[in-house]
Amino acid sequence: MNIFRLAGDVSHLVAIIILFLKIWKSKSCAGISGKSQVLFALVFTSRYLDLFTVFISAYNTIMKLVFLVLSYATVYLIYMRFRGSYDSENDSFRVEFLLVPVTGLAFLENYAFTPLEILWTFSIFLEAVAIMPQLFMITKTGEAESITTHYLFFLGLYRALYLANWVWRYHTEGFFDQIAVVSGVVQTIFYCDFFYLYVTRVLRGSGKMSLP
């Protein structure tokens, strides 16, 4: 464990908690893409299947459980508890355009052709694109509440910190996970445009982020 990975995991946890509390307290999921949240729940489900077969550390197990519980709870809030406020009309990204290529690629590019390894690879590729429905929804509605932008900031920051973690691990222990690194770079690049808007609009300007 290094400071970059710990900061990344904390940033990821903060993002997930920000979103959950925003929906829970405001009793509304307006402006939130339910599709992205379903994809994130799918990412955790397909990645953490080794939860009960491999014990790495208490931290690892606890964080996996927290991510799984919070992501499913968020999906529950959106599609069940506060489904009246779910903006399905603007949450119109065709997720099959993500799932098909990601599934195909996971079968082509993986470390081993075993169910667990293919599902892990699927989760890595899917995580890189899972935020697309949410970013698409923001461009469609033309704005995002400030809390939603803070959620996206910490979510984007988490994988950027993981990139630093991989640089650190490469230089200190020769660790290099090509699939995770390439996918992590792609994932972080998708946030660049948002990061620019976040700094110029939200941090400096008004609380809301309204797109041009």
Binding site: R5, D9, H12, D50, V54, I56, S57, N60, M63, K64, F67, Y111, A112, F113, W120, Y162, N165, F175, D177, A180
Partner: peptide
């Protein structure tokens, strides 16, 4: 098939 790395990351 590369050596199976420990999946110690989240």
């Amino acid at each position: 098939e590369e050596d199976m790395k420990p999946k110690d990351e989240l």
